[in-house]
Design a protein around this nucleic acid. Structure first.
Length: 428
RNA sequence: GUGGGUGUAGCUCAACGGUUAGAGCACUGGGUUGUGGCCCCAGAGGCUGUGGGUUCGAGUCCCAUCACUCACCCCA
């Protein structure tokens, strides 16, 4: 019988790996909640139109990367390729602008894009996504980038750089677009075919080109940042001042363009050179027209997404995850001791002490070897002699000290050793 | 979607077109009738990614396909 494989580009996260995910998720919740963000979970499936309207009809994501399908009634649906559109949809649908508690949300979960998988790029990938609504104040822009920085620092990530840019408002962008297109037309034959295609579709994207010749030609090109309107320029200046005040180092990258249509004014990206062909660990920006465009009130918004796979790839470099291991191993000899041991194991677990035992009736040597591999602190050894006396051997695996004590006494001693730390694990 | 590289045991890798596809680590048992790490012995584990083809003979050569990987495209 042929075995069934996971779908291409969609990965299992196994024990040994999952510890990284748990750490990242725990710290993400902790940091984001500290900044006033509250978790929201939206469905993985949405109406196709949400994304084509929200992200932009001509973007690559919508044009060729979406998992789109019709359900049994013929409704056009899609697996979400990103979270912002969904969060905005929920915000509008539940009238959350009227909620006095929070206007800031975060969302952890899988996204889907039908691309060719490679290192740091998968068809199902996971994002930490944060969105804040209702204010256009540059304080919020600086704050959200500061929060991203703190999150990455708390995770222990180093060697990344924050790039920022301003994409202006729709008005200044429109005039700039024409200026740029004219510049590109003047030396049309010098650019690569990709750039010529970009020129007609979305001229800003030529700045993303990696062909050296194109880049050198672009050095003399007019910059969007130089031609944004005075309001946008003033906004960007304040963002930079607040960032400096927060001692959050950043480089101004006038060539950074983002692939989604909805961005306005501030755009930012956290980049690294250690992810192969991928360079973005996270990115985001302001989207002042999006809530309105999706049928809601005309409210500004700003957000970012961090790629969890990419984050974990960087965190992992050279480091093994701490694999979760039990604290106690129960070794039993003979059937009646094994029966008694089975119930004792459950009792210890119920008390909150992570305990493992052998179910196969193996030799004591084998059970001890397994206990050693599991790196437990203590082993309880119960044989016929101990059983008859109502006692049990309690062995400290580090000191190799071993005592014959009544079963109740052994339980008390294990509670003493492990229960406090267990409590801390569960209620940090 | 396009192009290159790679698929052999759970993992890391051997095997000139030619016996029964091997090693290390990991796993199981034993060396000690009831005690871990080191050591020694033994065992188990494979449709050589899958399907075709060439050949007397294919892990090895050819084609297709799937997966991984690198680059392009793009992004998290």
């Amino acid at each position: 019988m042929e075995s069934i494989q996971a779908v291409r580009g969609m990965n299992d996260i196994l024990p040994g790996q999952i510890e990284w995910w748990q750490k990242v998720e725990r710290l993400a919740r902790e940091v984001l909640e500290n900044f006033g963000y509250r978790e929201i979970r939206t469905p993985v499936v949405e109406k196709l139109e949400l994304f084509s309207r929200g992200i932009g009809e001509s973007t690559d994501i919508v044009e060729k990367e979406m998992y789109a399908f019709a359900d049994r009634k013929g409704e056009r649906l899609a697996l979400r390729p990103e979270a912002t559109a969904s969060v905005v949809r929920a915000y509008i649908q539940h009238n959350l602008q009227a909620d006095p508690i929070t206007q800031k949300f975060f969302c952890l979960g899988p996204m889907f894009r039908h691309e060719r998988p490679q290192k740091g790029r998968y068809r199902q990938f996971h994002q930490i996504d944060a969105e804040a609504f209702g204010s256009d104040d540059p304080m919020l822009d600086a704050e959200i980038m500061y929060m991203l920085r703190i999150l990455l620092e708390r995770l222990g990530l180093t060697g990344v750089v924050l790039h920022i840019n301003s994409l202006g408002c729709p008005e200044c962008r429109k005039t700039y677009r024409n200026v740029l297109r004219e510049y590109l037309l003047k030396q049309a034959d010098a650019f690569c075919p990709d750039c010529l295609r970009r020129r007609d579709l979305n001229p800003l994207r030529v700045f993303d080109c990696k062909v050296e010749r194109c880049q050198s030609l672009l050095e003399a090109a007019p910059m969007l940042l130089d031609s944004i309107c005075s309001d946008c320029a003033a906004h960007f200046d304040k963002v930079k001042i607040y960032l400096d005040g927060l001692q959050t180092s950043h480089v101004i990258n006038p060539r950074m363009v983002r692939g989604l249509d909805y961005y306005t004014r501030t755009a930012f990206e956290v980049v690294t050179d250690q992810l192969g062909a991928q360079n973005a660990v996270g990115g985001g920006g302001r989207y002042n027209g999006l809530v309105r465009d999706l049928g809601g009130p005309d409210l500004p918004g700003i957000g970012f997404a961090v790629g969890m796979e990419r984050l974990i790839l960087l965190l992992q470099q050279g480091q093994e995850a701490q694999r979760r291991m039990p604290k106690v191993f129960l070794a039993a000899l003979g059937d009646s001791a094994r029966h008694k041991g089975f119930f004792l194991t459950q009792e210890l677990r119920t008390l909150g002490i992570e305990t493992e035992m052998d179910y196969e009736g193996r030799s004591l040597k084998s059970q001890m070897r397994r206990a050693d591999r599991l790196n437990v602190g203590h082993v309880l050894i119960m044989g016929e002699d101990e059983l008859a006396a109502g006692r049990i051997q309690l062995r400290d695996m580090n000191s190799k000290e071993q005592f014959l004590v009544p079963v109740e006494k052994a339980i008390e001693m294990l509670k003493e050793s492990y229960l406090k730390t267990i409590r801390q694990d569960f209620f940090p």
